[in-house]
C-alpha cells in the first residue's frame, strides 16, 4: 500500500495504461441526469492502487449510481471516467475480468450449491490468468477466507442473510480482481461476521494489492476500513480525505471531561486543538482534577455536521465544480 508521495492526481489525462500503474480510478466532473433530474453534478475523485475508499452519503445521494457508472453498468451523461485505464462505457471482457462487483440485493442462483456456483463462475476467469495473478481463486481457499467452508455443499436458498452476503463477496472476488466495488457489503452481518469481513478487506488490499471502493452506512466501519473517505451529498463530493483529516478540517467539537471537587465537568472545545485548554486546566487545578478524558469528535459527528451543513444550505452555494485538490478537501468554507 505504499504509494509515493506527491503523486499528481488530477493533472493526469485519461491515459490508457500509461497511468503510472498507480491511479486506478479517475473521475472528473461526472454528471448524471435522468430526464430533468440531476443525480450527479460534477463528481470528481481518484483512487490509487491498493487504496480502500469509502463512499458515504445520505440515501439517494447517488452512491449506487456512481458505482454503477464505474462498473460500466450505467451510461453517464457527461464527464470523464477512467477505471483501470479504460472508459467503463467501452470496457471489454478482459477489462471486466479485472473487476470484482458486489452489488446490493442479489438473490440469484438459489438452487445452486455454494461450491458449485463458485467453481462455475471461476471458470470464466481462467483464460485471464497471468503469472502475477493466478485466476480464479482456489475455491476451497476462497470458501475458507469468507468463512463458508462448512456451508460449501448447501443450497444457496437455504443460507442465512449474512451467509448469502458472504457468498456475494466470494463471488465478487473469485476472479482475483484488481479493483473491487462493494455496495453495502456488510448489510445484515452480525458483529462477528462484520469483523471477519473487515479482516478480509484488509487482506485484499494488503496482500492482493486490490483497490477497493465501498459504500456503507456504518460510519465506524468506514473509519476502520477506509484509507480515504468520500462524502457524496447534494450531487457532488463534499469531502474527500482520511477520517482524521475530515475531523480536523471540520473542527468538530472535542469534548473534555474531568472530575473536580466531586463534580463531573464537561467542556466542549469547539475549534482547533483541545491541548491548550487541558494545559490551562491542569495548570490551575492544584492537583484536584482527576478522571481526565479527551474525546475527539467521531467520524459520525463530522459526517453529521457536513451533511447538516449541506442540507440546511449553508456553505458552498456553487455546489458544482470538482473538489480540485488532492488530499483532504472539505469543499465548503467554514462559515463561523
Amino acid at each position: 500500500m505504499s504509494s509515493p508521495e506527491n503523486v499528481t492526481i488530477l493533472e493526469g489525462q485519461a491515459s490508457p495504461k500509461g497511468d503510472g500503474a498507480h491511479t486506478v480510478i479517475e473521475v472528473r466532473d461526472l454528471q448524471m441526469r435522468y430526464g430533468t433530474k440531476d443525480v450527479l453534478r460534477g463528481v470528481s475523485f481518484t483512487a490509487r492502487r491498493g487504496e480502500v475508499l469509502a463512499l458515504l452519503g445520505p440515501n439517494g445521494a447517488g452512491k449506487t449510481t456512481t458505482i454503477e457508472i464505474l462498473e460500466g453498468f450505467r451510461m453517464r451523461s457527461a464527464g470523464e471516467v477512467s477505471v483501470l485505464g479504460t472508459d467503463p462505457a467501452h470496457g471489454d471482457e478482459a477489462w471486466r475480468a479485472r473487476l470484482g462487483v458486489v452489488l446490493q440485493s442479489w438473490r440469484d442462483h438459489g438452487r445452486w450449491r455454494v461450491r458449485e456456483l463458485l467453481s462455475h463462475l471461476g471458470r470464466y476467469y481462467e483464460p485471464y490468468s497471468t503469472p502475477e495473478r493466478a485466476r480464479p481463486w482456489d475455491v476451497d481457499e476462497l470458501l475458507r477466507v469468507v468463512g463458508l467452508t462448512e456451508h460449501a455443499d448447501k443450497k444457496i436458498n437455504t443460507l442465512s442473510g449474512g451467509q448469502r452476503r458472504r457468498l456475494d463477496v466470494a463471488i465478487g472476488i473469485v476472479g482475483r480482481p484488481e479493483l473491487i466495488f462493494l455496495d453495502e457489503p456488510t448489510a445484515g452481518f452480525d458483529p462477528h461476521a462484520r469483523r471477519e469481513f473487515h479482516e478480509l478487506v484488509h487482506r485484499l488490499s494488503d496482500f492482493e494489492s486490490a483497490t477497493i471502493l465501498l459504500t456503507t452506512h456504518d460510519l465506524a466501519e468506514a473509519e476502520k476500513l477506509a484509507d480515504r473517505i468520500l462524502v457524496l451529498a447534494d450531487h457532488h463530493i463534499i469531502a474527500d480525505g482520511s477520517a482524521d483529516e475530515l475531523g480536523r478540517q471540520m473542527a468538530t467539537a472535542t469534548e473534555v471531561r474531568w472530575t473536580q471537587g466531586g463534580d463531573r465537568h464537561v467542556h466542549a472545545v469547539a475549534e482547533g486543538d483541545a491541548t491548550e485548554f487541558v494545559r490551562s486546566l491542569l495548570a490551575s487545578d492544584d492537583g484536584a482534577v482527576s478522571e481526565l478524558e479527551v474525546r475527539h469528535g467521531t467520524l459520525e459527528d463530522t459526517y453529521m455536521a457536513l451533511v447538516h451543513r449541506i442540507e440546511t444550505g449553508q456553505g458552498d452555494p456553487g455546489s458544482g465544480g470538482p473538489a480540485g485538490v488532492p488530499g483532504a478537501v472539505v469543499a465548503t468554507e467554514e462559515s463561523e
Binding site: E93, R96, W106, D108, H109, Y125, Y128
Partner: peptide, 19 residues
C-alpha cells in the same frame, strides 16, 4: 432471472452473457 439478479451476475462476469 432478470428480477432475481442472475442476468446481472452474468453481465458482471467476463463473457458471462455468452455462457
Amino acid at each position: 432471472e432478470r428480477e432475481d439478479g442472475t442476468l446481472l451476475r452474468a453481465k458482471a462476469t467476463p463473457n458471462g452473457m455468452l455462457g
